[in-house]
């Protein structure tokens, strides 16, 4: 006998095998957030800055990272972090610098301009393995 918790959507049977019919079904679990937060990274003119966030998961988790490359613009970009038209600062896609480790994740901010820049970021560290 299997055990667990199910809550089906209104009008859907609790015996349905379609995951989309459920508000909650412990059989499929949820996307668990083990850490979330944000901050601001300053990067000097024509250089790079590395940001490291400890998460202590003990495994390689999936990380969702959003970046407001022009603070105050209100545009929060998601992956992938390529150089984007209209944005003067971007997150490097080089996996040597933007990656998730067992206990920290890090990303590199690249500033191609001649001025010091700030970026705002927000992240979710997901309680699921992104890399074995």
């Amino acid at each position: 006998m299997s055990t667990g918790i199910k809550i089906s959507k209104s009008g859907k049977s609790v015996t349905s095998t379609n995951p989309q019919d459920y508000i909650l079904n412990s059989k499929w679990g949820k996307i668990k957030i083990i850490k979330q937060g944000g901050g601001t990274q300053t990067v000097n003119a024509s250089t790079t800055a590395d940001t490291t966030i400890p998460h202590g998961a003990g495994f390689y988790p999936i990380v969702l990272l959003f970046v407001e490359q022009t603070p105050g613009a209100g545009r929060w970009y998601g992956v992938p972090f390529k150089e984007l038209s209209g944005e003067s600062v971007y997150i490097s896609s080089d996996l040597g610098f933007t990656s998730s480790g067992k206990n920290v994740f890090s990303f590199r901010t690249v500033n191609t301009t001649g001025d010091t820049k700030n970026i705002n970021y927000y992240y979710f560290v997901i309680g699921a393995t992104g890399h074995l």
Partner: peptide, 8 residues
């Protein structure tokens, strides 16, 4: 280990 949890 959060990977062991279905719901927490």
């Amino acid at each position: 280990d959060p990977r062991d949890w279905i719901l927490n």
